[in-house]
Amino acid sequence: QVALSRTQVCGILREELFQGDAFHQSDTHIFIIMGASGDLAKKKIYPTIWWLFRDGLLPENTFIVGYARSRLTVADIRKQSEPFFKATPEEKLKLEDFFARNSYVAGQYDDAASYQRLNSHMNALHLGSQANRLFYLALPPTVYEAVTKNIHESCMSQIGWNRIIVEKPFGRDLQSSDRLSNHISSLFREDQIYRIDHYLGKEMVQNLMVLRFANRIFGPIWNRDNIACVILTFKEPFGTEGRGGYFDEFGIIRDVMQNHLLQMLCLVAMEKPASTNSDDVRDEKVKVLKCISEVQANNVVLGQYVGNPDGEGEATKGYLDDPTVPRGSTTATFAAVVLYVENERWDGVPFILRCGKALNERKAEVRLQFHDVAGDIFHQQCKRNELVIRVQPNEAVYTKMMTKKPGMFFNPEESELDLTYGNRYKNVKLPDAYERLILDVFCGSQMHFVRSDELREAWRIFTPLLHQIELEKPKPIPYIYGSRGPTEADELMKRVGFQYEGTYKWVNPHKL
């Protein structure tokens, strides 16, 4: 086992960053958080920038500027975001240094004079007029057009580079997404736009490419001749908990499936790229999406959770019991969808996408189930092999396979070949997804960000279904809070070829 401390991990990262040409360590950078008073800024962006600063992973002359409508001070920003920093008493001095680099400007999102004030403020910072500028839009999409237009007109660096990070949702359907994309691309070049999907920053999602293309053993079996089906799962054990009003506007397909799960599907299904260059990788992902037809209604199961009468606390409440959810809402909190990649490698292999709230566990994984062994000599005792990439929690890679049961006879039983990170790298604290992705933006690497043509294809696949749901308002199937979801989803999976045995229990190697 390799035991690495946080300091050692960050030392390795620093070495990698400083050796590259793309990370300008000594240049002045300004990180501007648009929507600095909001939840995302408070819980994710400010803490992430602090962790990067604490670990010495930001360029040395980096300033952080918050911008929002609320009249706040840096002290206010500190008060609301610091509880999420997880700072230790030993880091007190470092924390003071961090907040000394912070400033805040209040202004409207659609007022040109406010942006001119913001620009004057940035120019007044040390070497601010020639600094590289990175704008993070932690804002609702309704203000994107006004904000990007004003940034472009008043706040661009004339000497350094300018980059803009856009948070999902990128529209509600193909038409609104196209409108937003066309607007942003009329102001910024594609190499300046970073559409963030934080799932692409997760260690195991990034590991998929290495697993596939750096190991000879997987190449020959990664196709329709050997793989019976692919299941991509995202499960949350909690409901909307008072935030249903926002969720109800989008629903589970827009929230998770059309982005996170579809991105994971691309990494499983794509061909080997010409290189690890950002556009070479994204070219292959677009090719996969172009091979997927629009979702067919007979390959869809929609569910909505109801309270568990035997549960406790939140578990007793259904989705419609959330006071922020519109009365009688038919918005799905669970969806199972089957897609097919219609190309030579994957023809006929079902890709089953499942996601839901208020389920029995927290889990995100990719599961490849292989065909049955031909010419069975073990009297149907063999179960199908599976390769599982567990994204969260407890990152893991393992192969479910058959071995001989101890004893006199040739009785096979299920076991696993474990390729888990935790076994080799004991207690290594890896940077989280937002840390990686923000560092990628500083480096100018777009590999783990969504390109406009990729986004367009993703919406093309799901828009007809979303429009049909909005028009017909089908009643989702009720499922109990804390269950596996509607049984109809299991029946759909069985119908397209997935075999669920229920006889195997994964042993978490992190707890051995």
Score class of each variant (00 low, 15 high):
D255R: 08
V256I: 15
M257D: 00
Q258W: 07
Q258H: 11
Q258V: 15
N259P: 12
N259K: 06
N259C: 11
H260M: 15
L261Y: 02
M264G: 06
M264R: 02
M264Y: 14
L265P: 02
C266V: 03
C266I: 04
L267F: 14
A269Y: 01
M270I: 07
M270N: 03
M270T: 04
E271V: 02
E271S: 08
K272W: 01
K272Q: 14
P273E: 00
A274S: 12
A274E: 14
S275K: 06
T276G: 09
S278D: 13
S278R: 04
D280K: 08
V281F: 15
V281K: 02
V281I: 11
R282A: 08
D283C: 09
D283H: 04
D283P: 06
E284G: 06
E284A: 12
K285D: 00
K285V: 05
K285R: 15
V286A: 14
V286M: 13
V288I: 12
V288K: 04
K290V: 02
K290M: 06
C291H: 07
C291P: 02
C291M: 11
C291R: 12
I292N: 01
I292H: 01
A297W: 11
A297Q: 05
N298E: 11
N298I: 08
V300G: 03
V300E: 01
V300H: 04
V301I: 09
V301A: 08
G303H: 01
Q304L: 00
Q304N: 01
Q304K: 01
Y305K: 02
Y305L: 00
Y305T: 00
V306T: 13
G307C: 05
P309G: 06
G311R: 11
E312N: 12
G313N: 10
E314S: 08
E314H: 14
E314W: 08
E314R: 07
E314D: 10
A315N: 10
A315Q: 11
T316C: 08
T316H: 04
T316S: 13
K317G: 14
K317D: 09
K317F: 09
Y319G: 00
D321P: 01
D321M: 04
D321T: 09
D322Q: 06
T324E: 13
V325I: 07
V325D: 04
P326H: 09
R327E: 07
R327Q: 09
R327I: 10
G328S: 12
T331I: 06
T331P: 01
A332R: 02
F334C: 07
A335Q: 01
A336Q: 11
A336N: 07
V338E: 10
V338W: 01
V338C: 10
V341G: 02
E342F: 05
N343R: 02
E344S: 06
E344M: 08
W346K: 01
W346G: 01
V349I: 08
P350N: 01
I352A: 01
I352T: 01
L353N: 01
L353R: 00
L353C: 07
R354A: 08
C355G: 11
C355E: 01
G356A: 00
G356V: 00
K357Q: 12
K357L: 10
K357N: 12
L359Q: 05
L359W: 00
L359F: 00
N360H: 07
E361T: 15
E361W: 03
K363G: 11
K363T: 14
K363H: 14
E365I: 02
V366Q: 02
V366H: 00
R367M: 08
L368R: 02
Q369H: 08
Q369R: 09
F370K: 02
D372Y: 03
D372E: 12
V373A: 15
G375F: 11
H379E: 10
H379T: 09
H379R: 15
K383T: 13
R384E: 02
R384F: 08
R384V: 02
N385M: 07
L387G: 00
L387S: 00
I389R: 03
R390L: 08
Q392N: 14
P393G: 13
A396V: 15
T399R: 02
K400A: 11
K400G: 05
M401T: 04
M401L: 14
M402N: 15
M402T: 12
T403V: 03
K404N: 15
K404H: 15
K404Y: 15
P406N: 05
P406G: 11
P406A: 14
G407W: 06
M408K: 10
F409P: 11
F409L: 15
F409Q: 15
N411P: 15
P412M: 11
P412H: 05
P412G: 13
E413N: 09
E414Y: 15
S415E: 13
E416I: 15
L417P: 04
D418P: 14
D418N: 09
N423H: 06
N423M: 06
Y425H: 14
Y425K: 14
K426H: 12
N427K: 14
N427Q: 14
N427S: 15
N427C: 15
N427H: 11
N427W: 13
V428G: 12
L430A: 15
L430N: 15
L430V: 04
P431S: 09
D432F: 13
Y434N: 13
Y434R: 15
E435R: 07
E435K: 03
E435S: 14
R436P: 13
R436G: 14
L437S: 15
L437I: 11
L437V: 15
I438D: 00
I438Y: 11
V441P: 07
F442A: 07
F442L: 13
C443S: 14
G444L: 00
S445W: 13
Q446A: 12
Q446T: 05
Q446E: 04
Q446N: 03
M447P: 15
H448M: 15
R451W: 02
S452C: 04
S452P: 02
S452H: 04
D453F: 01
E454N: 04
L455M: 11
R456S: 12
R456T: 11
E457M: 04
A458V: 12
A458G: 14
W459K: 13
R460T: 02
P464A: 05
L465D: 01
H467Y: 11
H467K: 15
H467T: 11
Q468N: 07
I469H: 11
I469A: 07
I469G: 05
E470V: 05
L471V: 11
L471A: 06
K473D: 13
P474V: 12
P476V: 12
I477T: 08
P478Y: 07
P478S: 09
Y479W: 02
Y479P: 00
I480Y: 13
I480E: 11
Y481G: 04
Y481M: 07
Y481V: 10
G482K: 05
G482W: 07
S483M: 06
R484K: 13
G485C: 05
G485W: 02
P486M: 03
T487Y: 10
E488K: 13
E488Y: 06
A489S: 15
D490G: 09
D490S: 13
D490Q: 12
D490V: 11
D490P: 03
E491W: 07
E491P: 03
M493I: 13
K494R: 13
K494M: 12
R495P: 04
R495S: 10
V496C: 14
F498G: 14
F498V: 15
Q499G: 14
Y500T: 14
Y500W: 06
E501R: 07
Y504H: 15
W506M: 14
V507K: 09
V507G: 11
P509G: 13
P509M: 15
H510C: 13
K511N: 12
